[in-house]
Design a protein around this nucleic acid. Structure first.
Lengths: 169, 169
DNA sequence: CTTGGAATGTCAACAAGGCTGACGTATTAT
DNA sequence: ATAATACGTCAGCCTTGTTGACATTCCAAG
């Protein structure tokens, strides 16, 4: 009653004030820094960058994916991706196989060394995620995922859901 | 029983599988792209970048903040920040006032033009946030914020909480 | 069989925005 | 007086994004 909460819906709408939204924005900013911090440290030692991590991650997720496919998921230009792929290939972390049906396509796979790097990076990232999940609890995690999914662009949501629904490997 | 769920705690631990954690990681990746997409479009038209957005945002949040303070929040070098601040100052978006108590310090403020840009950017970003919040609902939003906070580095969490608890302005 | 378009690779040039290192200058603290 | 702090700046480097142009290879349609 003393609170500025309208009888119907007031409490439910409180989380939509500019103030609440701003908190969410700042939380996203600070959290993303934490999210990338651990892999970044590992990558720096190996003379790789975030771009390499992303490529390796999604090749691991979708072995045999084509360059075009990866381009769409990563949302960068082919020149940008190519620079990264070139180093990964010449360093023996990624293997390229010319398409059997369509020989224009290049299918990308991780080598053993590539898979090892992927594991090292995602282990570090998962550790932080696990700690955060454990601290927040399952209900919070469900909400977390819901909000993130609602925040994506339409295109990205499609990519995300495709990966999500395909399950492991 | 057919499921690999242990009697006690099994259900609660299900959200900590590598698979679930991976989904969270990918959700963070795709969502962050959406999170920055709208401001990025506005900034591109005005020949500014994300770095300018961040500076303007936190100067708006803490008017009169010092350079050192901003440095700590943004987590970049002074050279990096200085490049951005220089353009904002010469473009008349940020005003610098020499400290009264300690004349070594420079206190940063947004001009009217600076405040206008800040509003344009944060309106765009809040719109997306609001849509996501509304779609997910208040319980999800609470969880979202909890997980993000748990994901931050210790230093960043301190900065976040300081801003959070100071409330509006 | 030719030809258009798709998928890919590659070269060059450029910009934003990180970084390090070094140096200068007030100003404050010891 | 001297040291430390806060800041600015110059120079140079790296990663990762961008455009634009052009070659190749191959599929598919005419």
């Amino acid at each position: 009653m003393a609170e500025a909460v309208s009888p119907q819906g007031g409490q439910d709408l409180l989380f939509l004030t500019d103030e609440q939204l701003r908190k969410g924005i700042e939380a996203m900013f600070f959290a993303y820094r934490g999210f990338t911090a651990d892999p970044d440290r590992i990558l720096a030692q190996k003379d790789y960058g975030r771009a390499h991590h992303r490529a390796v991650h999604f090749i691991h997720r979708s072995p045999g994916t084509t360059v075009n496919n990866l381009l769409a998921i990563l949302g960068v230009t082919k020149q940008s991706l190519n620079r990264v792929l070139r180093t990964l290939i010449s360093d023996g972390l990624v293997e390229v196989r010319v398409g059997r049906e369509d020989k224009r396509e290049r299918h990308l796979f991780l080598t053993q060394a590539g898979a090892a790097l992927e594991r090292e990076l995602s282990d570090a990232q998962r550790d932080r995620m696990r700690t955060a999940y454990r601290a927040a609890g399952p209900v919070a995690v469900a909400g977390f995922r819901q909000v993130l999914e609602a925040m994506m662009d339409e295109d990205m949501r499609r990519h995300f859901q495709a990966l999500r629904d395909r399950g492991p490997q």
